[in-house]
């Protein structure tokens, strides 16, 4: 069990003149969750496709579940589950039929495939929709089914490519709960996401990728310390007092602030958390500046990228 679930070195993938991956190293310890965080086009999906044997790397090696993806793709496929970015369930088949089909293709005997399907539908709260065609499922249901399909054969390693992109906040929260309970069972997970919040909530380690390079890595706390502290955001009611409020934030947080005049909002990084927020609130109140909104929030991916690369995520 000492061997990592995934060990990739120097992965390169080019499409003609375009380099999608430019030397990615990645290690996923057994039972751990690693998030690959980055904007569209950073190389997240390409990484997943190489590690799941869907496409061959131009250079570099990857050992997944103990087997080389280039030479033992079949052995890798027996041990992994992939939930691709667009839920790949069959629209004309019911949820139950989708699960049984994949179970049988994983060589489960028919009866076992059916039992497994029922069990997974129950686990993912889809029993009522079991006999409905998936074209009539909501986005959240389809993602849950896709995840269930991924688990049919008890994979050792799960690949989740942007599992909550395009979902509404409620469906996203539900899916996070599901993924967390999966993680509790000890399966190794490689997850890609565009949301820092998602990476932080689900992953032990985060790799930040940009233009095919890993530009930062570590756990969420390290990363945040390294690059993006929390933000205090203030929206004032009277735009004439925007600069005044900006001065107050600059003084209290002892940093530069960003002022967005179009929405009368000032943003300042802070490391003092709630305490800083209280101080700002008092200072604004003392100055008699009326506030529409005052909040402490996490840096967005854009801000993380700004801190790391000096330019926003594309």
């Amino acid at each position: 069990m000492a061997a990592p679930a995934i060990e990739a070195t120097g992965l390169v993938k080019t499409f003609g003149a375009f380099t999608a991956l430019d030397g990615v190293d990645l290690t996923l310890p057994r039972g751990a969750v690693t998030a690959v965080l980055g904007p569209n086009g950073a190389g997240k999906t390409t990484t997943v496709r190489i590690l799941t044997t869907l496409t061959a790397a131009t250079a570099g090696t990857a050992i997944v579940a103990g087997f080389d993806v280039a030479t033992h793709a079949h052995e890798v496929r027996r041990r992994i589950g992939l939930a691709a970015q667009d839920a790949t369930v069959d629209h004309l088949l019911t949820g139950f039929e989708n699960l049984v089909m994949v179970g049988e293709l994983h060589q489960l005997p028919r009866r076992e495939a059916r039992d497994r399907a029922r069990q997974l539908l129950e686990t993912f709260a889809l029993t009522d929709a079991a006999d409905r065609r998936t074209e009539h499922y909501s986005g959240g249901m389809r993602r849950r089914l896709d995840l269930a399909v991924t688990l049919v054969a008890n994979p050792e390693i799960l690949f989740l490519d942007e599992p909550t992109t395009g979902l509404d906040p409620r469906a996203r929260a539900e899916l996070w709960d599901v993924i967390e309970s999966l993680v509790d069972t000890g399966v190794s997970v490689l997850l890609t996401t565009q949301y820092l919040e998602e990476a932080e909530r689900l992953a032990d380690d985060i790799l930040v990728v940009d233009h095919g390079h890993i530009i930062a890595s570590g756990n969420a706390r390290d990363l945040k310390r390294q690059l993006g502290r929390d933000r205090i955001g203030v929206t004032v009611i009277d735009s004439a007092r925007l600069d005044e409020a900006g001065d107050i934030l600059r003084r209290v947080c002892a940093t530069e602030v960003e002022i967005d005049r179009s929405v009368r909002t000032i943003t300042a990084p802070t490391s003092t958390g709630l305490g800083g927020l209280t101080t700002v609130a008092h200072a604004l109140d003392d100055a008699g500046i009326e506030v529409e909104d005052l909040a402490l929030r996490q840096p967005t991916l854009d801000e993380v990228f700004l801190a790391l690369t000096g330019r926003p995520a594309e």
């Binding site: 057994r30 039972g31 027996r78 041990r79 994983h106 060589q107 489960l108 005997p109 069990q119 129950e122 686990t123 688990l151 054969a153 008890n154 994979p155 050792e156 309970s181 999966l182 509790d184 069972t185 000890g186 399966v187």
Partner: peptide, 14 residues
């Protein structure tokens, strides 16, 4: 119910 999903000594079918 999820516990059975990752008895990571996964049984592989031939």
């Amino acid at each position: 119910t999820l516990e059975s999903t990752a008895d990571t000594g996964t049984t592989l079918h031939e």
